[in-house]
Design a protein around this nucleic acid. Sequence first.
DNA 1: AAGGACGCCAACCGCACTGTT
DNA 2: CAACAGTGCGGTTGGCGTCCT
Length: 337
Amino acid sequence: MGRQPCCDKVGLKKGPWTAEEDKKLINFILSNGQCCWRAVPKLAGLLRCGKSCRLRWTNYLRPDLKRGLLSDYEEQLVIDLHAQLGNRWSKIASHLPGRTDNEIKNHWNTHIKKKLKKMGIDPLTHQPLSTVTDQSHITQPDDEQQPHQKQDDHTNPEVSNDDHQSQPETTSSSFQSSSVTEPKDDQLAENSRTSTLFVVDEDEMQLINNGFCTDEVPLMEPHEINVVSSSSAATTTSYSSSSSSSSSTTSSSSSNFLEDLQLMPDFEWPPSDYGNNINGGSTTTTSSAMTGFWDDQADYFNSWDLLIDDDVDRKQILDPSLTQGPETVLDHEYWPF
DNA sequence: AAGGACGCCAACCGCACTGTT
DNA sequence: CAACAGTGCGGTTGGCGTCCT
């Protein structure tokens, strides 16, 4: 039985998103939160499939995203996590605040892979290349084959949701980490306890263990969403078209987008409090940090009229008593459908 | 200066998983 | 329990920008 396509593709737009579309999507999620992605394009007036909307939001528009190249620390963390998790990018991303699986995946394929190869380490097995090739070409003639059996994990009935019992021995490589643990993952936790290479300090450890999961974070406050100015919204140029890998152009693509969307010239993005608190604490801390930011930026909402047309929606967002806290803005119960 | 090669990344595609009926 | 709907995830691709010749 073939799966039904996620949406009726006839008449739907594909390709890079325009500022206008971004605005509509932000506007809609701002008012209604994240739910029922299939319904989003219709309700938001977008000629996109829901999947595309979700992707655009999670990978690009979400305000808690970090932009720019991965830091050395993040990169090392990715390498380390990859040694344990394989190509499970979403899981890896869950350990890197503000990073998306797509971003990490891209970074892995474009930067880290090469780096490791240069260092004489096989990016697939995290073993020294010489010994790896001896072993790998026997069972994995294809250089790109996955050592961690990502797909098989899902289909193996003996494997639980977190499915790491199928982790091959190769994961206990020199890149094993002592710092990365997943509460639900006994096998990985066990591996982690026995490995030593990647050491982080306590704060980092706390950050990692608290699992600032990007997938858990989308509870965002409306004030976190940059407002599209009428001028930038008028353009039909795709922001993504300016993206590039070089550091200079990366900033131009990523931050240009944010800059373009900013309405208030002195608006700090991301809020310094936000970042500091994230780096220093748990998701709970983050939440309170966000609340603090929320308070600080209360006046900011006065300029939202161009984004939110519906007064009621705005009141719900602006009035904490109506929202019962910022998070409720995205509460699914808010959805009238 | 021109154009081909390469690198990068946003977005798409399709399968898998999970929850609901 | 099967069928279906919704969503998540990872692999792949298209297009743009930069580099190199």
